[in-house]
């Protein structure tokens, strides 16, 4: 797969993963770009030890985790292509609510549920996060429960 094909195939998936983690359009776009820059830099070293998707999701998840460290050091807006800071289009209350609920979860839970909702197999999620498949299965079940409760609570409020 060429880099352009990877970019076309995975851009939306990675953007959603970043949105699930940050719930901020501009920030998620910045981190998506960072992810693809790393993919572009490292693609020649990719040795098929894992599936290409797993490898890309790993890079994206780690870039998300890295944000907490960069937050205090690099002001938002120093990314290569500074995208216009316009508000995201109204995608419907329920979609916004879901992303808001996910962004309120602990960091690792955000990554796990985002990958699960992106239809990544649990065995793959386990290798991306570094936990066993059993752990992931239990975690996904608990996160979904927590998410449903949060979602219903907010839905009731608004």
């Amino acid at each position: 797969m060429s880099f352009e094909e990877i970019y076309d195939t995975y851009y939306s998936k990675i953007f959603r993963l970043c949105m699930g983690y940050m719930n901020d359009h501009g920030w998620a776009q910045d981190v998506t770009q960072e992810t693809f820059i790393t993919v572009w830099q490292k693609l020649s070293q990719f040795r098929n030890e894992s599936a290409l998707g797993t490898w890309i999701y790993r890079i994206a998840s780690n870039h998300c985790l890295r944000q907490l460290e960069k937050q205090s050091k690099m002001p938002k807006g120093e990314m290569p292509v500074q995208l216009e800071d316009k508000p995201p289009p109204d995608t419907g209350n329920q979609v916004a609510l879901l992303y808001r609920c996910i962004a309120e979860l602990p960091e690792i839970d955000r990554i796990i549920i985002s990958l699960e909702l992106e239809d990544v197999k649990q065995a793959e999620i386990a290798t991306i996060v570094g936990l066993s498949e059993t752990n992931i299965r239990v975690k996904v079940y608990r996160i979904k429960e927590k998410l449903s409760q949060k979602f219903k609570k907010y839905e009731h409020q608004y």
Binding site: F3, G20, V81, P89, T91
Partner: peptide, 24 residues
């Protein structure tokens, strides 16, 4: 709640030109 269906409805902006991103 069908979270997967909601998840996929998230609006994704037009992709930036990757060549420009890499150059910068």
């Amino acid at each position: 709640i069908d979270f997967k269906a909601l998840w996929q409805q998230q609006h994704v902006d037009v992709k930036p030109d990757i060549k420009e991103v890499i150059k910068k």
